[in-house]
Nucleic acid binder design. Structure first.
Length: 198
DNA sequence: TAGGTGATCTTG
DNA sequence: AAGATCACCTAT
């Protein structure tokens, strides 16, 4: 079952970030269906969140998509090399998003291996936000795609119980203050597919 | 553990 | 218009 628009338009982004763990992220580009189980996420929560691209109301060509109503895709280029895939949440005008940081590869292994330039699979195939996009074929041109369409979507699955979710500080928070340490990074306990801990 | 890489943002 | 910054990966 594809998650409905109503899943994403809810206002509790932390809750959504946790609920996305264990669900299946699917892309269908050029007839190639590829997918993976989401093992790690991070929440970015609006203009008050120092770590969020839309902090302090920043509204630019890049970040404007964050202000859209939940249920669309936001991909941006990081360090000139890696595409990072986010799901927009919350209502229109509230720039919240969930970054997908790691997946356990499911369908379309041959296509994924080709995209990753590998000959055989391993646990690290989708373990990192840049690698998630490399596996599923995401680039900045996919920004704005609806998760209710037939190119990218997320399929429902059983909830990961709270006790099996590891919370920690988000990666790459170089500033000081409350939002540096806030535990908005979520991983499935014991998963070998998550990105390296910091 | 350092370097690569380029879009984006900030400063002058 | 130039320089700093950046939610990272890979191979030394």
């Amino acid at each position: 079952m594809k998650l409905e628009k109503e899943f994403y338009t809810r206002t509790d982004t932390i809750k959504i970030a946790k609920e996305l763990l264990g669900k299946k992220l699917v892309s269908n580009f050029g007839g190639n269906i590829t997918s993976g189980i989401i093992c790690e996420t991070e929440a970015y929560c609006g203009t008050k969140d120092r770590g969020c691209h839309a902090y302090n109301g920043r509204f630019t060509d890049r970040t404007k998509i964050m202000y859209a109503v939940g249920g669309v895709v936001y991909v941006y280029l990081c360090y000139g090399v890696h595409y990072l895939f986010n799901v927009i949440t919350h209502i229109e005008g509230e720039p919240h998003a969930v970054l997908i940081r790691a997946i356990a590869v499911q369908d379309g292994l041959q296509t994924i291996l080709k995209r990753r330039n590998k000959t055989s699979p391993d646990a690290g195939l989708g373990a990192g936000p840049g690698l998630v996009s490399a596996c599923l074929g995401f680039t900045t041109k996919h920004t704005g795609l609806s998760l209710s369409g037939n190119k990218v979507w997320i399929e429902d699955a059983e909830r990961i119980p709270e006790k099996n979710i590891i919370k920690s500080a988000r990666v790459g928070m170089t500033f000081e203050g409350k939002y540096k340490r806030i535990p908005w990074r979520f991983r499935i306990k014991g998963s070998q597919f998550t990105s390296p801990a910091k």
